[in-house]
Computed example of a mutant assay.
Amino acid sequence: MGAAFQPAANLWAAIALALGGGVIAAAIVFGWLWQTSDFARGVRSAQAQPVPFSHQHHVSGLGIDCRYCHDTVERAATAGMPPTYTCMTCHSQIWTNARILEPVRQSLAQNKPIVWRRVTDLPDYAYFNHSIHIAKGVGCFSCHGDVAAMPLTWKARTLTMGFCLDCHRDPGPNLRPRDKIFDTTARPRPDPASARTLLAFYHIGSRDLTDCSICHR
């Protein structure tokens, strides 16, 4: 009676096990790399919006200050989104019949806010307050990039826990003088002496900024 398995069966079984283990390991590595990639996190990817609003046109082109639309950024946790009547302050006078602005006109006529898709959205378990960052000299550019150069708004930074901790461990390089906080263009990081001056000016350093309770409350 012949043998059920040939002598080479052990070799093929070992090869199959090795290949199976390799595929599983590769899948785990790929999954980890995918979820930590900029693509999976939406970095540098513009969100489709009800109205293709251009910061490049409104900020760089027309010189509109960030705070005209995001009017709570200096006094609240959220930067705020402009109500429709803010948009219509100008667009009741210019581009009044533009097809691209039909959602804006409908929003005003129906008294329903425009539902914008969030570009930078932190997890609910992470607490972030815009006002304290502005008060302490952190410029918009540090988290949002050069928004004034964006035809459509995209996420400029990963905004991961590691990203936040890097700044909290060494905030000096991200600080700006008061008159440069809302300048969204990239600027040379301050030299060590200037960074120390800004840290002292904004009274930063009396609390451990890497304490868990800073962001998780």
Rank of each mutant, 00 (worst) to 15 (best):
M1H: 15
G2I: 13
A4C: 09
F5M: 09
F5W: 14
P7W: 11
N10C: 11
L11V: 05
W12M: 08
A13V: 02
A18R: 04
G20I: 00
V23P: 06
I24D: 05
I24N: 03
A25C: 08
A26N: 00
A27E: 09
A27Y: 13
I28T: 13
V29A: 13
V29H: 12
G31L: 06
L33N: 12
W34M: 03
W34T: 02
S37Q: 03
F39R: 03
R41P: 03
V43K: 00
R44E: 07
S45C: 14
Q49H: 08
P50Y: 07
P52E: 10
S54L: 07
H55E: 15
H55S: 15
H55W: 15
H57P: 01
H57K: 07
H58C: 15
V59Q: 08
V59F: 08
S60E: 12
S60R: 11
G61C: 09
I64A: 10
I64S: 11
D65H: 08
C66H: 01
H70P: 02
T72K: 12
T72G: 04
V73K: 09
A79G: 09
M81T: 07
P82D: 09
T86H: 06
T86N: 08
T86L: 12
C87V: 06
M88L: 07
M88Q: 02
M88P: 01
T89K: 05
C90V: 01
C90P: 05
H91F: 03
H91M: 04
Q93R: 10
I94A: 13
W95S: 14
A98E: 06
R99K: 13
R99Y: 06
R99W: 10
L101K: 04
V104K: 01
V104M: 10
V104Y: 03
Q106S: 01
S107P: 01
S107T: 03
L108H: 07
N111R: 12
K112H: 08
I114F: 00
R118G: 12
T120D: 12
P123S: 05
P123R: 02
D124P: 06
D124Q: 10
D124H: 06
Y125S: 13
A126Y: 10
A126F: 13
F128L: 06
N129P: 00
S131T: 05
A135N: 00
G137V: 00
G137E: 00
V138M: 02
F141V: 09
F141L: 04
F141K: 02
S142V: 13
S142E: 14
S142I: 07
C143D: 01
C143E: 00
V147T: 08
M150S: 02
L152I: 11
W154V: 11
W154A: 11
K155W: 02
A156E: 01
T158M: 09
M161V: 11
M161D: 13
G162K: 10
G162S: 09
G162W: 13
G162F: 13
F163N: 00
L165G: 04
R169L: 12
P173M: 04
N174W: 04
R176E: 05
K180D: 11
T184A: 00
T184G: 00
T185V: 13
R187W: 08
R189Y: 10
R196Q: 14
L198T: 11
L198A: 12
A200K: 10
A200M: 13
S206G: 06
T210W: 04
D211N: 11
D211S: 07
S213E: 14
H216Y: 04
